[in-house]
Design a binder for these strands. Structure first.
Lengths: 346, 346
DNA sequence: TTGTAAGCGTTATCAA
DNA sequence: TTGATAACGCTTACAA
């Protein structure tokens, strides 16, 4: 009610104990007699005490803060990842200071400075502007997710396996030719595995394939235009052949699907389509679209487990041996929906 | 490099100033001679000083923390709102401690306790489980967004206006009958305005209408089933009439659209559809769908402005007069896409 | 323009 | 089982 905050001192005076004993009540209650515990418990109620973690932090150095740098929350993938990370509060108790970097490298460095000023115990980085080498130099526990990770611990989807799964499914649909549409992902990035998985699977099955790696533009409209063109190109080049198309993500898959449905009134029998990510759009599409689902909950959970382990390590050892980065990989899950039906042939 | 942190004391010794002078260098540099400023600046570099905000907070009580309680990040609306709120860091400098409540009232109370323990200066609440009366009782600056807000300051979309805009657009499409599909939103909730806006507009234009308020279920599949049924019902009841359908949100609108397109190969000429929210799905739909866009950036910005004003107020006056809650309303924007074409009639 | 010293609300270290 | 006292790193009167 009144303005002043109730402190251990107030409680101590009220109960005729010392500050120390009050502190013990919270941190090591068993060292007090049961009776005294009750006295203090009652005093807390009488005085309406609220704990002050800032003071606690200053005294013991443990903030229980984890910093998060996320590229944006526009893409469902990041939003859901953040959701899962935040949910880990129930399990580990760490609080999250969140920054959205929006691909601004300078801003990102400022955010990191700010986070460090708050003595965060660790950091989860999803943005991809700052090299892992620099991240590692900050010298605090860091886990990166689905990005370049040479010098940091990381959790990634097994993109290669995802590529294999998607391509294999198309192959089972008795396609005559397989096509992969993607941008030219650099080798250091986890998502590059999707391309390799596609290639290896096609070669293994000795099936004709085409790899379409090109910049599809930066806006939704650009993407759409590029995919419409691509659709025309494929329609001409592979007329009458059953085309199995593996797109880099569900957004692209949906654009292609929409173009075809608007053109033909439905998805023509000689098309099979699969995307990647299991974003909402894959399920909400006019024809529910097959996709490769990243196990976002597992990725988030694994990331926090690695981070917590490293943070605990810090609290123990004096000579904080950094230890070499650990890289974990999470298997994706094939989601078979209506765009990859196996044809009923004789 | 080494483990120990550099403090003002170290800098003071290094420069032969006092701690106070070092503090002044940061908080009121003009009170130092230029020469001395340079000396200290150099010392900061030499010693590789990193600021410690926790100590600062303890000393001056200002955390620059704002707590956010968000229902989830699955819905794009919340994700984008969070994105915009986080972006306000550049403008106001407040850091955000974020919790996802997932409709768990007990958890939400725990989160709030935790936030208060960190001396957050204010709070933005998007979740809707805890009554505004209780929120107000926490006695710190709070702004709620798009939820029951009797006892708290708030920012909401002008839902009534949105309902009017959507309905008017359908009316302009020369529809014979207007239909609004929604759940039975209680009166205290801002979204109720959409229903009222629909009703008033229909009555004003003296056009036949039907209000379909019913629980559409809790899962995506349930919703889909319910909307498929509804589509059949409308098709029978209003055969040959041009039906203008205003759905409570873009997800519903997309489901209805998909059902119709799968049935007829395209959107039949006697249908006009509009949703609400301008979620990504409305633009990604097989036929880009008209909708009413909430100005999420403006809402977030306004919320932060109100909050910052209240937080500043706190820092000034001793007898922190709470002041009565302020309610701001943001006009939505009509987004006219392909599902509300004006028919080319004679 | 600069310094001294008393906080801020805990925890940690020693003693008792 | 309990208490005195010194940190923790900075801010803020009050002095000089």
């Amino acid at each position: 009610m009144n303005g002043k905050k109730v402190t251990f001192d107030d409680i101590a005076k009220y109960t005729n104990f010392s500050k120390t004993t009050i502190s013990r009540y919270f941190n090591n209650p068993d060292s007090l007699t049961l009776k005294n515990q009750e006295i203090i418990a009652q005093a807390l109620i009488d005085l309406d005490y609220r704990e002050n973690k800032v003071a606690k932090i200053l005294a013991n150095g443990k903030t229980e803060f984890v910093g998060i740098i996320i590229p944006n929350l526009y893409l469902h993938y990041y939003a859901e990842m953040l959701n899962q990370i935040l949910s880990s509060y129930e399990k580990f108790g760490y609080k999250f200071l969140v920054f959205a970097a929006n691909d601004n490298e300078a801003a990102e460095r400022r955010y990191i400075r700010e986070l460090l000023a708050y003595n965060i115990e660790g950091m989860i980085v999803l943005s991809h502007t700052i090299p892992s080498r620099e991240l590692a130099s900050y010298n605090i526990p860091i886990v990166t997710i689905e990005r370049e990770d040479q010098y940091t611990s990381s959790v990634n989807t097994d993109n290669y396996m995802g590529g294999v799964q998607a391509t294999s499914l198309l192959y089972k649909c008795a396609c005559d030719v397989l096509i992969h549409i993607n941008v030219d992902v650099p080798k250091g990035i986890p998502a590059h595995g999707r391309i390799q998985g596609f290639l290896d699977t096609c070669r293994e099955h000795r099936i004709p394939y085409e790899l379409l790696l090109k910049d599809l533009g930066n806006t939704y409209a650009d993407n759409q235009r590029a995919l419409l063109e691509t659709a025309g190109y494929l329609e001409r080049k592979y007329e009458k052949k059953r085309k199995g198309i593996f797109l880099a993500n569900d957004t692209y898959a949906n654009m292609l699907l929409n173009a075809l449905v608007r053109l033909h009134g439905s998805l023509p029998e000689d098309y099979r389509i699969i995307g990647f990510d299991n974003s909402p759009i894959s399920g909400e599409a006019v024809i529910p679209t097959s996709t490769v689902g990243q196990q976002i909950d597992k990725i988030a959970d694994t990331a926090m487990e690695i981070l917590v382990a490293q943070m605990n390590e810090r609290k123990k050892r004096r000579p904080s041996v950094p230890g070499s980065p650990v890289h974990r990989v999470i298997t994706p899950v094939l989601i078979n929906r209506d765009t990859t039906r196996i044809p009923a042939e004789i």
